[in-house]
Design a binder for these strands. Structure first.
Lengths: 169, 169
DNA sequence: TATTTTTATACATGTAATTGCATACTCATG
DNA sequence: CATGAGTATGCAATTACATGTATAAAAATA
């Protein structure tokens, strides 16, 4: 199912609520501590997504989120707190040519063909500041919610660049 | 109604139908020369997949396979041709995972590969607020002239998402 | 262990998706 | 322009989904 659960979103108006809701659940769950399905229900309701606890129980199951002492987490990332930086540091070292801030945007320049892999690495790092990334051939555009968050992100990236990768950061 | 055992079981049954058939069609079509839907029907029937020509006509359309002098081919590898634009509401339902406002930009997140079709649908809607759109793999960036216009556009999109076209719980 | 809180499920219901059938449409030929 | 092969589509029956309600099961607490 979903995408089959997997990959393919169902083409239905009905699932419109479901697909988006799943995305929201993932977002809520990853940046804050949701202690119960009831709490999650309230959070969603606060943004006009009104469903019952029963539905959330099913959603969490489909999303394979499990409850831990710190809220719901993806079972996949449970084993170990992923390694966000190494891949990014390497990608930056290999591709980054320039960093150009622009208000709430951060533009990364690379040699031709380097944008996609670098963008993938940036995505993989899952910075909380990034609202999204778009990559062309030699340019990666990172969108952040505000100028402030862009500055924060920029510092992190610059730190990775100036200090070549070494063991875990 | 059937006795539901488990949600996953149903899904499996479902995908065994259409999804599996689609996979078989792709396989057959890529290694041999299928000259007609009737021939395809016979080939599938030979492996216990019995459906009518009408169904195959629909399948081929969904798989975006077009007929050429050498049988059915994926349109993707053929000279470009515009794909019918899915209505925005439908595209949103199928792909939209999250909406992230950022100053005068609106970032729409989708599952991998969903950005292009969703962006096409957004373009098709011809909102007066959009100055332009850019799409990567799983991110659609909509640029608007101002924060104000972004807010306006955001509301319109949110309305399409949270409120199904036809009444529903 | 009893009580309360939280999560999972059987069931019913409303919708949407899938598919076969019959038939219309298309296009190349004679 | 009639014919026939091949393809598309309106309609109806069937099947599958999503979700709420009510309630059971499980977990946490007292």
């Amino acid at each position: 199912m979903y995408k089959n659960t997997e990959r393919r979103a169902r083409l239905t108006i009905m699932s419109m609520g479901k697909t988006f809701r799943h995305g929201q659940i993932l977002r809520l769950v990853t940046d804050q501590r949701i202690a119960s399905q009831e709490e999650l229900r309230r959070r969603l309701a606060a943004q006009k997504l009104r469903v019952t606890q029963a539905t959330l129980s099913r959603d969490l199951q489909e999303l394979r989120l499990v409850k831990t002492h710190e809220g719901y987490k993806s079972e996949a990332v449970l084993p170990e707190e992923s390694t966000p930086l190494p891949p990014l540091a390497r990608a930056l070292g290999e591709f980054l040519l320039d960093i150009r801030p622009a208000e709430n945007l951060l533009v990364l320049k690379t040699p031709p063909g380097g944008a996609q892999p670098l963008a993938a690495a940036v995505d993989g790092a899952k910075f909380t500041e990034t609202a999204g990334t778009v990559a062309g051939d030699d340019t990666v555009l990172i969108i952040t919610p505000s100028k402030r968050s862009r500055e924060s992100l920029q510092k992190k990236i610059e730190a990775l660049v100036s200090r070549p990768l070494r063991g875990r950061a």
